[in-house]
Structures are given as structure tokens and as C-alpha cells.
């Protein structure tokens, strides 16, 4: 059970949060993107074993999205970042 440091609310228990996937850059304008490029955006993820950047939402709390750097093996959370916060 993760102890997730919400950048706004501080450390909170895992059940308050919702995992939001790896950040993926939306290719625009979409109409000009190839099928392959669009499929990659929709479905391809790094799925890193180890250091992993991912989005979470404090859905059961402040409702804010933020970036998490987490180890997918040890589940150590290296840090959490507000949107736009320099990485």
C-alpha cells in the first residue's frame, strides 16, 4: 500500500489516488497524424521496469493531477511534481 505524497495535500494512503498512466504527448493536429503515430500515442507505453514517470490523480482528495517518479519494482516513490514544475 503506497504512501503517496500529494504535492498539495502531503502523504496520503494509496486508496485515495487514481493511477493515470504514463504521460503521452498528444500528436497534433491529429488529422494529419499517421495511423501508426496515433496508435503509438494511444497504446504504446514505456512500461519501464524500475524508474517510471507516471501521472496520478488525488481523486479522493484535492482532485489534482501530478507527476510521480516511482520505481515499479520496489515501489519507492522518488518524488512527486506539480504540473509544470521543472523536472
Amino acid at each position: 500500500m503506497l504512501l503517496m505524497p500529494c504535492p498539495w495535500c502531503g502523504p496520503r494512503d494509496e486508496p485515495e489516488f487514481q493511477f493515470g498512466g504514463e504521460p503521452a504527448t498528444r500528436p497534433i493536429p491529429a488529422a494529419e497524424v499517421s495511423d501508426q503515430r496515433w496508435a503509438d500515442y494511444l497504446y504504446l507505453r514505456t512500461n519501464e521496469k524500475g524508474f517510471h514517470r507516471e501521472l496520478w490523480c488525488h481523486a479522493g482528495g484535492c482532485g489534482q493531477w501530478f507527476l510521480v517518479e516511482r520505481d515499479t519494482v520496489t515501489h519507492v516513490i522518488h518524488r512527486t511534481l506539480k504540473p509544470g514544475e521543472p523536472a
Binding site: 500500500m1 486508496p15 493511477f19 517510471h52 507516471e54 496520478w56 515499479t72 519494482v73 515501489h75
Partner: peptide, 13 residues
């Protein structure tokens, strides 16, 4: 489980 993981262990909740 609700988030990706390579840890082969349980989670109480």
C-alpha cells in the same frame, strides 16, 4: 492491481 508494477507481492487494500 490499479497501477503498473513489477513487484510480485500482495497489497492489503
Amino acid at each position: 492491481d490499479l497501477y503498473p508494477s513489477y513487484a510480485q507481492r500482495g497489497n492489503l487494500p
